[in-house]
Amino acid sequence: MLLSDFLRETLRMTGTHVGCEHGVCGACTIIADGHSIRSCLMFAVQADGLSLQTVEGLGKVSDLHPLQESFREHHALQCGFCTPGMLMTGVDFLDKHPNATDEEIREGLSGNICRCTGYEHIVAAVRSAAARKRETIR
């Protein structure tokens, strides 16, 4: 069983979305042991012993993760289908590239497809979250 199906069907945690189911669209991206991965390209059995984070673990409606807050402020979602994958990719990307330029942000998100084509707003949200994260650390 694919890890993406295990999350959605067995655990009934439907925050993780499934689009293409062959690793191209990025919608099912989650974080495993600190690194973003495609949950449709891993079997559930392989995750035995790993620490997984899905969008459910990122923040709550009453207490959004800073990147989620930034997505809300910058209108970085329209239909919302790609959003969980964008968020989990964004969290891993900002972790690895805290001082990312716009070009690096675009490259970092290039594995996630938004069919509403709302990329400008998504890049703006990640850029702003990066700046906020740097300020907090300072």
Partner: peptide, 9 residues
């Protein structure tokens, strides 16, 4: 080579 989540794996 591919994208972040693919390179992670």
């Amino acid at each position: 080579v591919a994208h972040l989540a693919i390179r992670n794996r």
